[in-house]
Nucleic acid binder design. Structure first.
Lengths: 343, 343
DNA sequence: CTGAAAGCGCTAACAT
DNA sequence: ATGTTAGCGCTTTCAG
């Protein structure tokens, strides 16, 4: 590998001057600088980032931990982060926690050794504890919060997004609206549930436990929960599903049960995706500014690394995209007074 | 940050011994080793990878460049690579080329400075040239080949996959089979086209230029190409589409034209995906062992880094997955001798 | 404005 | 089996 010393030799200066010429041009005579630049060019010099980092204790590297790179939502977050980092000459070390606190911990340990200057993390349930590993490092929580006090985060406005989705359903006349909700130790799931409750309240509808089923964020969980919800004697006429993967499962379950969307069942999902658009009927969804979330988180982090104070935490707005999976409910067979259905 | 020196002090040994105890346990007395390990544990010591890499000229880092992390196919490749690397204690530096040779070049330059020990790359059109930047580095080409002589690659068996797909169509009785094919400077596109030709030949069908339209791998390209193919006076009864993104476009185009799948048009895509399964009708596709491609590429690379000789290049088999987007063609209105349709 | 020298944290020779 | 010493490539005092 071509080193700075060889460049210096060719330019007939000391390594120190060569270094300055390349990195602090203003400290060096124009003429000398040009000689060095030419020499570097000619030899195809590439600075050894490791040596530089070791010396300056600044690696121009940041860490990124997402929970599932195979989920297009996370892939998009990652791209937002990467693009922003690259624009500023930072390299991203990306890891996958697969929602497992253990993998997250290992990722943090590995990361640590690379002397990152900052970290962007989509938290798991244990992130609060795990972050001790990198104490002192500037951290941005992305998409969710770990609940750690004083944490800085870039999030979507989940409450409002969910409220809008469910209000859309109540406005259409739905009165039995089921929800498939994520694990309550994940902040997005809690917030979306809250939005659901608020929208029900606003429409004067009661909150019914039986209509809210939990799922572990995966397609299979969504399918299972939907099966249960839709097999109830008085089944919901609409479903609000708390994340993208579970929405697939819910739609597949509806198909299996022979329910026609949206005539017999309206569905709104959270987070837009390719298949939400290609599905027939195309899904009505709460879209998140995913790429921007990643991008802003990274810009934030880099500004803090650059010495700026922490900006206030941000909630980016969501957008309800009306497509074809929602419509007014079928006229229900009129009901007798509650509980009177036993012959 | 806790350094080796402090560990050494606490364990009352020299830094060198501490280093050995941690990294070459067999060179050190059991008792000493335990003291060092305990000290390290107690102080929460994390080795500074940068310093180690600088000294040993071995960073335990490999580079990965994919062309589009938002494409689930590439995300899956990446996960295969990452999982395999992590298993062996290697860290992956991942970059996106977005199919742009320029971004690929910049990624390589950045990578270079981090002294990676190997590289896995999904090539773009200029990879052959760009790789000069990291000459001497072990490189595995993944999914595609750059055409560079002596390159090592881990690929899917595209020719055979395409042949199988198109043979499936000919077996169903299709005789006008269109293909939407990728850019011919990408090896997968060339190979899939060849498979298409072979299958036609095997069925005694002529190869017709008018039935083969190029696209630039994106959804929009697929849509456009399909629009053209399906607007021909004597339109194809089946379509074979050369990659996953373009298949979405093609299906959407068919919908826009009011064509019912599979009755009026059969479609086979290359590469399976979430939406290929959720689409109705669910798509018949040539599935690739995507995760395994990434995994094997990484295992390969690491074995070479470890001093093993290069294994022979590999072609992993594809699988035709029959779903609901293919069926025998409609009985065509019988045709008069060619070209006689002007009144 | 430029050079000499020291040192970031670690490990590999070379001693003992 | 352990300590001593040197140096990976770079940047940064400190002198000139």
């Amino acid at each position: 590998m071509i080193g700075l010393e060889e460049v210096a030799k060719l330019a007939r200066v000391s390594p120190a001057t060569a270094s300055r010429a390349l990195h602090r041009p203003e400290l060096v005579a124009l003429q000398t600088r040009e000689r060095v630049e030419e020499a570097a060019q000619q030899l195809g010099y590439r600075p050894n980032v490791l040596a530089r980092s070791l010396r300056t204790r600044g690696s121009r590297t940041i860490g990124l931990i997402v929970t599932d790179i195979l989920n297009p939502f996370h892939a998009t977050l990652a791209k937002g982060v990467q693009d922003a980092a690259e624009g500023q000459g930072y390299t991203v070390l990306m890891f996958n926690s697969d929602e497992q606190p253990d993998k997250e911990r290992r990722a943090l340990e590995t990361l640590q050794g690379h002397l990152p200057q900052g970290l962007i993390v989509v938290p798991t349930a244990q992130t609060g504890d795990n972050l001790q590993i990198v104490s002192g490092l500037p951290v941005v929580e992305l998409d969710r919060t770990s609940g750690l006090e004083g944490a800085h985060s870039v999030l979507a406005d989940n409450v409002s997004g969910a409220r809008e989705a469910v209000s859309h359903l109540t406005a259409l006349g739905h009165r039995r609206i089921g929800m498939i909700v994520g694990r309550q130790d994940v902040s997005t799931a809690r917030e979306r549930l809250q939005g659901y409750r608020e929208a029900l309240a606003a429409a004067g509808l009661p909150y019914q436990e039986a209509l809210v089923l939990p799922g572990n964020h995966r397609e299979a969980d969504g399918r299972l929960a939907a099966m249960q919800l839709l097999s109830q004697r008085e089944r919901p006429t609409a479903l609000f599903v708390g994340n993208n993967e579970m929405t697939v499962g819910a739609v597949l379950a509806a198909r299996e049960l022979g329910l026609e969307l949206p005539r017999e069942l309206s569905v709104v999902g959270f987070d837009d995706s390719r298949w939400a658009q290609t599905l027939s009927p195309a899904l009505t969804v709460v879209a998140q500014p995913t790429y921007e979330l990643g991008q802003i988180a990274c810009q934030w982090l880099l500004s803090v690394i650059g010495g700026q104070p922490w900006p206030d935490s941000v909630r980016l707005p969501t957008t309800l995209i009306h497509r074809s999976s929602t419509s007014p409910p079928l006229a229900q067979p009129s009901r007798h007074p509650a509980g009177a259905s036993v012959p």
